[in-house]
Simulated assay, not measured.
Amino acid sequence: MSTWPVYTGTAEPHDGVSRLPGPPPWRAFDGGPVLTLSQQEVDSASPDATHRGSTYRATPESIDLVNAALVLRRPLLITGLPGSGKSSLPYAVARELKLGPVLRWNITSRSTLQDGLYQYDPLARLYAASKGAEAKRATETGEVHHPGDAIGDHLRLGPLGTALLPYDRPRVLLIDEIDKSDLDLPNDLLNVLEEGQYEIPELVRATSHTPEAKLMIAGGEDRVTVHRGRVRCRAFPFIVLTSNGEREFPPAFLRRCVPLQLRRPERDHLEAIVRAHLGELDEETTRVITTFLERSSTGELATDQLLNAIYLSRVPGLEAESRDALAAVLMTHLGPASEFNDF
């Protein structure tokens, strides 16, 4: 049976990820013990995530490059204008391949590698330990265990840390707007993404008396057991990094990613997107699309601006004059020159 493409872009869920060929020898990982998402976890996506996944319309280029990233076990770096659908693609892949909820890490200028891997609250642990000591002194035996004084109660895995757990199928991780990060973050990510593993120093230091710790994962209250403070993946996650193209990345980072540039959609692609979100086109919808294309030829516009304008155009009782005025505001050009382009 053919293994290409595993991701088809049809928005129809299937088990095709089981046909994924083995990894290249230099991208094989053997973490364990193996974790499996339950069917309930696979189906637990929010209504918003389900809608995003089911309505995304992939181009032939994006389908090919998603499959390249899956086969090579490499991150997919998507560059495109705001509103071009960069962050929706991982939801489409997760839904079609039934890979469970998308783990999401929203990047800011203050984000660090540790934020993505895990969060640790030493002050809360110190407080819990002091309360435990007080309770111990108050007993005759001195053997009271105070709930909450275990180190695992004060650690929680982040989205990247959760994605790298030894799942039998790849988890989907969205690292959104990586170009907003501090200059060092892309370089800091290199070793973790290359090795598919990481350590939690607070647990490594405690291995002599606590060789195992149960930690909460990102996006839920479930706990997983981490052995000796080390995590190594088994199925390398499908990692999507998005960028608005506002900065350049180090060559060492770029060569470890599969690059995808999302371009301005043509009319037939726009119409397919509108149908997926809002149903069949009518005369008014076609007119708004034409206006959108005309305006986008003189400045940058995002697809979600078009969807908002079309949705409003279908509200009963809204007069044509008001509808056109609102559409003009909603489809204002993006960028610092917009005030000169639109008014």
Rank of each mutant, 00 (worst) to 15 (best):
S2Q: 10
S2D: 14
A11S: 14
D15L: 03
S18V: 10
R19L: 12
R19Q: 13
P21H: 04
P23G: 06
P25R: 04
A28D: 12
P33G: 06
T36I: 09
T36K: 15
V42L: 15
V42C: 08
S44P: 08
S46Q: 01
P47Y: 06
T50Q: 15
S54Q: 12
Y56E: 08
A58V: 14
P60C: 11
P60G: 13
E61A: 12
E61R: 15
E61Q: 15
S62W: 05
I63P: 00
V66R: 05
V66S: 01
N67K: 07
L72D: 00
L77E: 03
P82Y: 07
P82C: 04
G83N: 13
S84H: 14
G85Q: 04
S87T: 14
S88C: 11
P90W: 04
V93Q: 13
A94G: 03
E96D: 08
K98D: 00
L99P: 05
L99H: 04
P101V: 00
V102K: 08
V102R: 02
L103G: 10
W105S: 10
T108H: 12
S111M: 06
L117H: 02
Q119S: 13
D121F: 01
P122E: 01
L123C: 03
A124Y: 09
A128R: 02
A129R: 14
G132I: 01
A135H: 06
K136D: 08
A138L: 06
A138R: 12
A138S: 14
E143R: 15
V144D: 03
V144Q: 10
H145Q: 09
H146T: 02
D149P: 00
H154N: 03
L155Y: 02
G161A: 13
A163V: 06
A163Y: 10
L165D: 05
Y167L: 11
R171Q: 10
D176H: 03
L185S: 11
L185R: 04
D188W: 02
Q197E: 14
Q197H: 09
E199A: 12
L203A: 02
V204D: 04
S208V: 10
S208I: 01
P211E: 02
L215Q: 05
D222Y: 07
T225D: 05
V226R: 05
R228A: 09
R232G: 13
R234K: 15
A235R: 07
L241N: 04
T242M: 01
P251S: 11
L254Y: 09
Q261M: 08
R267A: 00
E271M: 05
H277D: 04
T286E: 12
V288Q: 12
I289N: 03
T291K: 04
F292T: 02
R295H: 09
S296Y: 08
T298L: 05
Q305A: 11
I310L: 08
Y311E: 14
L318T: 11
R323D: 10
L326H: 07
L330M: 14
M331L: 11
T332Y: 11
T332I: 01
S338K: 14
E339D: 12
D342M: 02
